[in-house]
Design a protein around this nucleic acid. Structure first.
Lengths: 170, 170
DNA sequence: AACAATACGTCAGTGTTGTTGACATTCCAA
DNA sequence: TTGGAATGTCAACAACACTGACGTATTGTT
């Protein structure tokens, strides 16, 4: 089997990786992440929003009615940092903030019509690039891409990955 | 062939990707990048350095005697931003700044002994995680990982990827 | 020799996004 | 009733990006 990228496998089935190969992996992450954020960044700057706004919109879209605490632990930032971003999104009418029914201490976040539309624009820009990259690399590559990324996540953060649930407890 | 991750391929050989699959790819990038930077970030904060210092050290190590302009276009930041970082690294004795021989306007950057040692510590932390992720995902996955990342880069930035040259012209 | 362009450094101001620390309010649960 | 949980907010600060402007040294060109 041709492994490509100068990898080799020894008799124990363990990958042998040179410093050079690891360095290229590191740089690949660096350069790819720039490309990954480039398109949404352009759209965001038109409305003088930043990447933090995009992230908030993304996860609110993913988990409608998500609570502040859940969003906080998903994003991994402080509440003060998130609050600044949410305040502008709520004021601008992109995000709805509703008091919980079971637990009135909680707030449930969701996208307004405008918010959905804007999130879609950002999401489309990012998805387009990802789709192009996927097709360029091929189906097998996509599988490997996701497998390596998942293995690279912190276990603590990984639990927030791949769910559509809003994490509400009954 | 089992593609996994719910992908499918149509008769034209084109990947069919649902919004859900693309969304998971986007989140994978987000969470993985956090993991990717987590270990070096810890080391950096002990010396009150940031990610920008790490990036500078990485590319100076990769291309010894690199000029300011080349480093600038590799990192994709402004000279004012880079200068702030380089100034501290030079003052702290981690980076050498030497006037060019052929062209005395240019400055050539390289790591000192201390700089090499520090860069190695950062690099090792990051490489360890990447090596673990690679081994967990398997040899085929690594190939796909790199292929997708490369396809995701901006062409303008991609030209800085995968070279050990310092970009000097004769 | 004169002049334009290149490479670099720096000052000042601004914006986004993160942090810590402190404090208040509201509400749930024991 | 009392403690803790969930949220919001104020203030201060730091990292790191940006723009704009200006200065100096050096090189290349006319």
């Amino acid at each position: 089997m041709s492994l490509g990228y100068g990898q080799s496998e020894n008799s124990s089935g363990l990958l042998f990786l040179t410093d050079e190969q690891l360095r290229k992996g590191i740089e690949a992450m660096f350069f790819a992440y720039r490309g990954f954020t480039a398109d949404p960044d352009r759209i965001l700057s038109e409305r003088s929003y930043g990447r933090a706004h995009h992230r908030a919109l993304h996860f609110i879209k993913r988990s409608p009615a998500i609570t502040i605490n859940n969003l906080l632990s998903t994003l991994g930032v402080t509440k003060q940092s998130l609050n600044r971003v949410l305040r502008t999104l709520i004021q601008d009418g992109l995000v709805l903030n509703e008091v919980g029914v079971q637990d009135k201490r909680q707030r449930h976040l969701s996208l307004t019509e405008d918010g959905s539309e804007f999130e879609r624009a950002l999401s489309n820009a990012q998805s387009d690039r990802m789709r192009t990259a996927y097709r360029q690399a091929g189906a097998d590559a996509v599988q490997g891409f996701r497998a390596v990324l998942e293995a690279m996540m912190d276990p603590e953060l990984k639990k927030h990955y791949g769910t559509r649930s809003n994490g509400q407890r009954s």
